[in-house]
């Protein structure tokens, strides 16, 4: 099966809200969150989507 879309990573500052599945990156604050998301976006050729202030996901389209 070929996946069309996949969540490659989850980046968050609030670790109580997440678990399991994709690789998880826990950050201290919003600045770190954004820089990690920007790096991961560039590395994985995915898009960083914001699910809220605390959670970003990287999705491959």
């Amino acid at each position: 099966m070929k996946l069309e879309k996949a969540v490659l990573a989850v980046i968050t500052t609030n670790k109580t809200k997440i678990s399991g599945g994709a690789p998880i990156f826990i950050c201290e604050d919003k600045n770190e969150l954004e820089s990690v998301a920007a790096n991961l976006e560039a590395i994985t050729d995915g898009i960083a989507h914001a699910l809220g202030d605390e959670i970003f996901i990287i999705v491959k389209h």
């Binding site: 954004e34 976006e41 989507h49 914001a50 970003f56």
Partner: peptide
């Protein structure tokens, strides 16, 4: 609107990073 990109009232996509 938040992370959502809009053209008038049509939703286009979710862009998370402020610099993007």
């Amino acid at each position: 609107e938040g992370a959502g990109l809009y053209v008038e009232n049509i939703y286009i996509m979710n862009i998370g990073l402020p610099e993007r």
